[in-house]
């Protein structure tokens, strides 16, 4: 959960990119790492196999001044999508504040999406948490490829919770949708944080500046 240090005027948030194998979770973080100016981000740590598959997690720390008078730190993690690494996925989920579910839009691997989505729910359940109680959103990635499912189909499949969450089109290799996804999850997480602290300024969060921006934009 978010952690506030009143002495240091710091707030920490943990955001985890989750999803099926090879859906583009690492690619999202890699793009952010190249596009965000140095002052706003740290180094990226990747624990990967020789084939560049995530073995444990990727990590990228970001800093923003989105909340007045505080330094907001967003710690971005990815989990490994491969089924065998469930234990490490579970560890990375500890205390998560916000989730991005990166789905693969390709028909050829479609069945992996609901499997991973269910796995996410199961893993949260081991911490006595429910997905509906964690801020999350969906990114339908690889929109640049042929043979992909329509957005409506993916929404129908994955966005059937009690509340429907935002879903974004992504082509993470080209950076498409990457910042929209990040800024929306950061704002959702901050809004939740403020709500939990009994302050009703969600509207301001929505109208506020992007939390982070690429150096190009």
């Amino acid at each position: 959960m978010p952690f506030v240090n009143m002495g240091k005027k710091e707030i920490n948030f943990k955001i985890v990119y989750y999803g099926p194998p090879m859906s583009g979770k690492t690619t999202n973080l890699e793009y952010l790492h190249t596009a965000i100016p140095d002052e706003q981000r740290g180094d990226m740590t990747m624990l990967a196999t020789q084939q560049d598959r995530t073995l444990y997690f990727d990590f990228l720390p970001l800093e923003s001044n989105a909340i007045k008078g505080f330094t907001s730190r967003f710690q971005l993690f990815t989990v490994p999508g491969q089924a065998i690494y469930n234990q490490t996925r579970k560890i990375v989920l500890t205390g998560v504040d916000g989730l991005v579910f990166v789905a693969d839009s390709q028909w050829s691997v479609m069945e992996q999406n609901p499997i991973s989505f269910q796995n996410l729910k199961d893993n949260l359940a081991t911490y006595n948490r429910k997905l509906e109680e964690v801020p999350y959103l969906l990114q339908f990635n690889k929109r640049d490829l042929p043979d992909i499912a329509p957005m409506e189909y993916l929404d129908f499949m994955l966005n059937q919770g009690s509340v429907s969450v935002p879903s974004f089109e992504g082509a993470a290799v080209e950076g498409i949708g990457v910042f929209e996804t990040l800024n929306t999850i950061c704002k959702t997480v901050m809004a939740q944080f403020i709500k939990d602290n009994n302050m009703d300024i969600n509207r301001d969060v929505k109208r506020s500046n992007p939390v982070v921006e690429g150096s190009a934009s």
Partner: peptide, 18 residues
């Protein structure tokens, strides 16, 4: 302890669009 009980009170304010 929450942010409120740790003394933040109504201190959290999201920066408005400039």
């Amino acid at each position: 302890q929450t942010a409120g009980t740790a003394g933040a009170g109504a201190a959290f304010e999201i920066k408005k669009k400039e």
